[in-house]
C-alpha cells in the first residue's frame, strides 16, 4: 500500500468520524442528506459482498466493516433517533434516487469486466459512488447556514477521491498488471463533481468567512 492510498483511506475514515461526531454531539443532522447516506449504504453493501468470499487483509476487512457499520448507524439516527430525526431537512432533501440508481445499474450491466452477479454489483457500486454525493451537494446549496463540520465532512470526502487518483497514478507506474479504466474514469468523474464545492470551501477558508454556496 502506498502513501496516497493510505492517506485517501484515512481521509475517508476521518470524514465519517466527523459526521458521526457532528450528529452525536449536536444531536442534529441539519444539512446532512439522508439520500446520500443511503446511496453510500447501497454502494458499500454491493461492493463489500466479497467480505464473504475473499479475504484480502485484516486492514481491508476491518475498514469495510467500519464503513458499513458507521453508514448504517448514521441512517438509523436520521430515520429513527427520537431527537435527531426531527432535525432532518426532509423537505429540502428531495433528490430522486432513481435518477442516479437506474443509469448506474444500466451502465453496470453494459460496461463491466465480467458478466457475473458479483462483478456487475461491484461495478454498479463503482458507478454509484461517483454520483452519490449529488443529493448532499444539492442540499448544501439550499442550506443558508452551512455549519463548519458539514463543510469539513464534504471536503474530506472529496479529498479522499482526489488522493485515490494519485494512488492510481502511482500504482499504474509501479504495478505491471494494474489497469482499471472503469474505476479510474468513475473516480475522475467523482472528483470533478467536487471541484465547485472545493472552490467555495477554500475561498471561504482563506477569507475567514462562513461557507455558503451560490444557488
Amino acid at each position: 500500500m502506498n502513501v496516497f492510498r493510505l492517506a485517501g483511506d484515512m481521509t475517508h475514515l476521518l470524514s465519517i468520524i466527523v459526521l458521526l461526531l457532528k450528529i452525536n454531539a449536536t444531536r442534529s443532522c441539519r444539512g446532512i442528506s439522508l439520500k446520500t447516506q443511503e446511496l453510500y449504504a447501497v454502494v458499500f453493501v454491493c461492493r463489500y459482498l466479497d467480505l464473504f468470499t475473499n479475504f484480502i487483509s485484516l486492514y481491508n476487512t476491518v475498514m469495510k466493516i467500519i464503513f458499513l457499520v458507521s453508514t448504517f448507524t448514521i441512517i438509523y439516527w436520521m430515520r429513527f433517533h427520537k431527537v435527531i430525526r426531527v432535525t432532518y431537512d426532509r423537505e429540502q432533501d428531495t433528490f430522486r434516487y432513481q435518477f442516479l440508481v437506474l443509469p448506474c445499474l444500466v451502465l453496470a450491466l453494459l460496461l463491466n469486466n465480467e458478466f457475473t452477479a458479483m462483478e456487475v454489483l461491484w461495478t454498479f457500486s463503482i458507478y454509484l459512488e461517483a454520483v452519490a454525493i449529488l443529493p448532499q451537494l444539492v442540499l448544501l446549496q439550499r442550506t443558508n447556514n452551512i455549519d463548519n463540520l458539514t463543510g469539513n465532512y464534504v471536503f474530506l470526502l472529496g479529498s479522499y477521491r482526489a488522493l485515490y487518483i494519485l494512488n492510481w497514478v502511482y500504482r499504474f507506474m509501479t504495478e505491471k498488471h494494474y489497469r482499471q479504466y472503469l474505476v479510474w474514469i468513475s473516480g475522475i468523474v467523482q472528483t470533478i463533481i467536487y471541484i465547485d464545492f472545493f472552490y467555495y470551501y477554500i475561498k471561504s477558508w482563506r477569507n475567514n468567512e462562513k461557507l455558503s454556496l451560490p444557488a
Binding site: 475517508h12 469486466n113 465480467e114 485515490y164 489497469r179 482499471q180
Partner: peptide, 10 residues
C-alpha cells in the same frame, strides 16, 4: 486477472 488487482481497494 487485471480486474482482480484493484479489489484490494476500498
Amino acid at each position: 486477472d487485471d480486474d482482480r488487482v484493484s479489489k484490494d481497494e476500498l
